[in-house]
């Protein structure tokens, strides 16, 4: 009788402790530049000339859902994720190109060269004439979804795992790349 009651308390304690960990329950780390009262909670500083006060204004995006550099931030980061592409691809290459250039979507040109784009980055592999490599759709899809599966220290953003692009958007990108003669 005594044992069972103790065990009940033990499990009750453990389960509440686990439930409390994953996301912030309203309390952000004390060193976060945030204002929970505004829509995009993330703040950016505004330096006011000849003033001893630093002003803060809402940033254009909410960045609180992702792991930060704060020591108080105990959320785990998303691990590499392997996915399976179900064919047919059914991607739209025109939409794919728009996503490749859009700042808040693929923005591939920061690192990669794409046809018709000036000031391309040189960090990533050349994507001109992509079709000639004959990569299977599945491989290209996984590379965009989460490239860490192929290379654990890849610097390419895990677009799928981190929720930057949804599945259809990645399909569109694959279709666009596979169309580059």
């Amino acid at each position: 009788m005594r044992i069972s009651r103790s065990f009940f308390c033990f499990f009750a304690f453990i389960s509440t402790a686990w439930l409390a960990t994953p996301a912030f329950s309203g309390d952000f780390p004390s060193d976060f530049a945030v204002d929970p009262a505004v829509v995009n909670m993330t703040l950016e500083p505004k330096v006011v000339v000849n003033s001893g006060k630093l002003e803060w204004v809402p940033f254009s995006r909410d960045l609180t859902p992702w792991v930060s550099l704060s020591y108080e931030d105990k959320r785990p980061a998303a691990r590499p994720r392997q996915v399976k592409l179900v064919e047919p691809l059914q991607g739209d290459p025109v939409r794919g190109r728009e996503l490749a250039i859009a700042r808040d979507k693929g923005y591939c040109i920061v690192c990669h060269q794409l046809p018709g784009e000036q000031w391309a980055g040189t960090v990533g592999a050349l994507l001109l004439n992509f079709k000639k490599h004959n990569y299977p759709n599945e491989l290209v899809f996984q590379q965009i979804f989460d490239s860490r599966v192929f290379n654990p220290i890849s610097v390419m953003p895990p677009y799928g795992t981190f929720g930057i692009l949804n599945e259809q958007e990645i399909r569109d990108l694959v279709a666009y790349l596979q169309s580059l003669d």
Partner: peptide, 10 residues
């Protein structure tokens, strides 16, 4: 941090 879309600190 903001340029790389990471929550900034104070």
């Amino acid at each position: 941090n903001l340029a790389t879309r990471t929550q900034p600190l104070k």
